[in-house]
Every structure is written in C-alpha cells, then in structure tokens.
C-alpha cells in the first residue's frame, strides 16, 4: 500500500486525537502537531511544513522552527510513518 495514502487515511479529530484504521494505533497531537501532520499528509517537505506553522502560529524569532519540524518528522519516521527529510536535518 502507498505509505502516503496510509497517512492520508488517518482519522484525525479536531482535538488532535489520531486513529490509524490499519493498525488500531492511536496518538495525540497538540495544535502545532496537527498543522504539521496536515502538511505532511499533503505531501509537503520540511520547509513547507515550517511555513504552514509560521502562517498558523506566532513564531518567536529566536525559535529554531526548522529544528522543531525536523524533530517532528523524525518522530513520525520512528513510528513507521513516511515523512520527508529522511536524511535528517
């Protein structure tokens, strides 16, 4: 099965509760995680994921958004999900 399709088939509630209908696994996402996941589900790369977060939230100028996004994508990959930037930040 197309891994990206499996990612798109995740059931995500407004509160950030995520259900994987293939495995039965459940996850919880905070609001920024939800926005990041939505971008990944659209097939976006790390920069576009960061841009989606920048558009949705106020980002402190001192915050290393690229690093936070890379960490999120790495957490996705560790759970077995396809995520861009497999070579790491």
């Amino acid at each position: 099965m197309d891994p990206l399709q499996r990612l798109r088939d995740l059931a995500v509630s407004e509160s950030g509760f995520v259900f994987d209908p293939y495995s039965g696994q459940t996850y919880s996402l905070n609001p920024s995680g939800q926005v990041a996941l939505e971008a990944v589900r659209r097939g976006e790369g790390p920069e576009a994921v960061a841009e989606a977060l920048r558009l949705r939230f106020e980002v402190d100028p001192g915050q290393d958004l690229a690093r936070d996004v890379a960490e999120f994508l790495r957490a996705l990959r560790e759970q077995g999900w396809p995520a861009p930037g497999a070579e790491g930040p």
């Binding site: 099965m1 259900f19 209908p21 293939y22 495995s23 039965g24 696994q25």
Partner: peptide
Amino acid sequence: PMKKLLLSDKGKGWAGVAVRDP
C-alpha cells in the same frame, strides 16, 4: 479484523478496536 488494546492477565483481549488492514 481487530487489534487488542488491553489484555487480561490470561492474555485475553479485554478491549479491542476494529481495524481495516487490507
């Protein structure tokens, strides 16, 4: 198909969820 979410001490499913893995 079902994935067990919780097991009894005898290893029996005490909670589970219907899944759709083709």
